[in-house]
Design a protein around this nucleic acid. Structure first.
Length: 182
DNA sequence: TACTGGATTCACT
DNA sequence: GTGAATCCAGTAA
């Protein structure tokens, strides 16, 4: 399996979000194909709209793991990119490939389609928490070039954020039962 | 120092 | 379809 290179993230977050689809993500014994992503730049919906201690990671380097807690209970997994302008890509859904039994145990559910079809669920299934924040890609969380092939890409705006709704924020693999709701 | 609200999920009706 | 759970970063004072 060929790891993706650091140059992979040295681009516009929208481009990286699209490129990440179908790639393999791996942590410990668990791995899966990325089937849904969301791009964030310096727009109103992104943490990078203002440079703060938390968002500093998005400004300082591309190709790093950015994790934060949302609603006080769920973690969200991002990869920083676009070193020049700040940005990150949120991993919204993953199709489980290996370590499925472990994921089921962590998530306390049996339905494989529900294991990682949301940002919080991805972190739950892979056992990702804030301790991984700031780590380099391929240090603990691995990304490989090999993965899904011959898929069609869908894109939508972000629901609920009016200013950003017309932009191509969210990318997902069409017809994938493992992607979240659209 | 205190307050506010959110890149979500799940149980319940 | 609706609302509760939960806690931290950001902001205002």
């Amino acid at each position: 399996m060929k790891k993706i290179s650091n140059n992979f993230f040295n681009e516009n977050s929208v481009k990286v979000a699209e490129k990440l689809l179908g790639k393999t993500i791996s942590l410990g014994n668990c791995s899966g194909y990325i089937v849904e992503t969301e791009a964030y730049g310096t727009d109103d919906a992104s943490h990078a709209r203002k440079r703060t201690p938390r968002s500093e990671l998005m400004y300082s380097s591309a190709g790093k793991v950015y994790i934060y807690l949302v609603y006080g209970m769920h973690y969200c997994l991002n990869f920083t990119c676009n070193k020049k302008n700040a940005g990150a890509v949120l991993i919204r859904a993953v199709q489980p490939v290996s370590g499925i039994e472990k994921m089921k145990k962590r998530r306390k559910i049996e339905n494989i389609f529900e294991l990682a079809n949301g940002p919080g669920k991805v972190c739950g299934a892979f056992g990702i928490n804030i301790s991984l924040n700031g780590a380099k890609v391929n240090e603990k969380i691995m990304l490989f070039d090999e993965g899904l092939k011959h898929f069609k890409v869908g894109r939508t705006g972000r629901v609920g954020i009016k200013k950003a709704a017309e932009l191509p924020w969210r990318f997902y693999i069409k017809n994938s039962k493992f992607a979240g709701r659209h």
